[in-house]
């Protein structure tokens, strides 16, 4: 069942997960340029941990509030709510320059992890697979998750395509932007909100580690290979999509866990950029 012919025949198995992987790869690769340049690489870990915490809170208060956490749409909605809120707070923290960005992200991650453990020790009886509510496995992507990912990707990319100049200016030269009278806080908020929106549906489709890897590795590779920002963004998105698709296909042919193979392929993309950087020295 591992040959190319068998792969083509089994289209029904791969069409949804592969499409989800490509969308997530391109989306995360694109946003990754901001994440890497602003040194907040652990943002996906922190935001998905906040999503977990939010879901635990939802389960604990489920009966009181009358929400059905068993429903995938409710799970995703809660995850997105906590992720966007967390992202906006991190953005404020970063804008205030009180802490290095990575330190704030790391603290949010660890505190959310600790709080999740504390909160989930409250429910002893009902069995819940918390992980499965936040993270997918890149192999079985329900149609609902794919549609949510595609829809949110469109919502995220719209402001990025319409207001590229403002977002780039504020993100990479906030001081000058502020001096020129631009509403830097607003644009910064938009940037973080899009991160907070993009990460939960991606994590739910392809899993934790691939999300983290696709948010950091393709952008790093693109930064090593290209010099001008428009090309960096395009290359990062392309590398992300290719890494996700090639990872999926390789995991089929050589029978390895899918998420891990995507991470490995994304890692390989650092090699040509690394060599080029060494040669340029």
């Amino acid at each position: 069942m591992s040959g190319f012919g068998a792969f083509l025949e089994a289209r029904e198995i791969w069409q949804d997960p592969l499409l989800a992987a490509v969308i997530a790869g391109a989306l995360l690769g694109f946003l990754g340029v901001y994440v890497v340049l602003r040194r907040t690489v652990f943002v996906s870990a922190a935001l998905t941990q906040l999503s977990t915490l939010g879901l635990i809170a939802a389960i604990v208060t489920e009966e009181r509030l009358g929400v059905a956490v068993e429903r995938p749409s409710v799970q995703l909605a809660v995850a997105v709510l906590f992720s966007v809120t967390g992202a906006l707070l991190l953005g404020r923290l970063h804008a205030g320059r009180r802490l290095p960005a990575e330190a704030g992200v790391g603290m949010a991650w660890v505190l959310a992890g600790a709080a999740a453990i504390l909160a989930s020790s409250r429910f002893v009886h009902a069995a819940h697979d918390m992980d499965a509510m936040v993270f997918g496995n890149a192999v079985a992507v329900p149609l609902g998750d794919l549609l949510a990912l595609a829809g949110l990707a469109a919502v995220v990319l719209a402001p990025h395509l319409l207001f590229t100049k403002e977002l780039v200016f504020v993100a990479f030269d906030g001081e000058t932007a502020r001096a020129m009278g631009m509403p830097a806080g607003l644009w910064n908020g938009v940037l973080y909100a899009t991160l907070g929106l993009a990460i939960p549906p991606a994590a739910r489709a392809i899993g934790a580690l691939p999300t983290f890897a696709l948010l950091t590795l393709p952008a790093s590779a693109a930064l090593l290979l290209a010099g001008r920002l428009p090309r960096i963004f395009a290359l990062a998105a392309a590398l992300g999509a290719v890494a996700a698709a090639a990872g999926y296909f390789l995991s089929w042919t050589i029978q390895l866990p899918t998420g891990a193979t995507m991470v490995a392929v994304a890692g390989l993309f650092l090699v040509p950029g690394g060599v080029a950087a060494l040669l340029r020295r």
């Binding site: 068998a6 089994a10 198995i13 496995n137 079985a140 029978q255 866990p257 899918t258």
Partner: peptide, 12 residues
């Protein structure tokens, strides 16, 4: 061990 997609195709 997490199944690769080809294993799921086989199971189908």
């Amino acid at each position: 061990v997490e199944p690769p997609p080809s294993h799921l195709a086989e199971m189908v």
